[in-house]
Amino acid sequence: MASHILSRLALSIPVLFGVLLLGFGLLKLVPGDPAMVVAGPMAPPEVVARIRTEMGLDKPVAVQFGLYLVRVLQGDLGYSMISNTRVASELADAIGPTLELMLACLVWSIPLGIGLGTIAAAHRGRALDRIVIAISVLGVSTPIFFIGLLLMQWIGYRWELLPFLGRAGPLWTLEGLRHIALPALSLGLVFIGPVARMTRTAALEVFNADHVRTARAKGLKERTVILRHVLRNALIPVVTLIGLQAGYLLGGAVVTETIYSWPGVGRLAVGAILANDMPLAQGAILVLAVSFILINLVVDMLYAGLDPRVQRR
């Protein structure tokens, strides 16, 4: 198990390098001159030129990337061009709310998705199955910003049931919970669909497996058969697919945070890109990419825990 995790960690190093390279490259391609941003619109050309030299923007791109890599490895993500604060500390402030949002989303959407998928599979071809399929198709095909705006418009604005702007405190306070409800609901709603569908497909396959017939032949109650023998085995592919959906989740978080002014990494990234704040944008992208890698690492570990056949390899 430990060596399994270590080898997974080693594999993530080239991925991280690629992420840094891509993040760096993308921001180089974005129109706009960071030196002009720092200097301000009224600055004379020689000031802009001096700032450009100070920031190392006059050096060849490869050298700039090398310097960037060295700084990142030292934990130095630079300073935001807009607020002139350390990028690392801005990100540190934003990671908490983003983790909160993910947790608040996953904690209800994954169990619900898995539950709905299992119910659908157990009622294959009947009304309940069709209803679950309809819900999940709707969930899969509705863009998250649309769901977010609808919820905001009706639950938040028209009916004034829940606040829809910003964060009011940690999760364990009532206000904190009230504020995270709508963002977590929006993000979770789009996640239920894929999870329910995957679970349904995986469970249907397991329902026909010989070992489920064996479980029934033992006289186990149907509920036990479903929970212990169908669901448990169906979770193996579902967990893998949830890992593959991690990108979807992170992308959804960026949109959700932006819509609801949730002070997380996603909103920070969008704001930084729009403001041409290169160091901050690079830092935010790096954090999102690392989360993606971490999510997949957790998924890998879960997978090895769920399927005893994996550990031997």
Binding site: H211, R213, A215, R216, G219, L220, H229, N233, D307
Partner: peptide, 20 residues
């Protein structure tokens, strides 16, 4: 009654046990 007074074994030993 199943598994208690009447039990059954099947054709496919490779797939009749739960792998997990």
């Amino acid at each position: 009654i199943r598994g208690d007074r009447i039990a059954m074994i099947f054709q496919e030993p490779m797939t009749s046990l739960n792998p997990v």
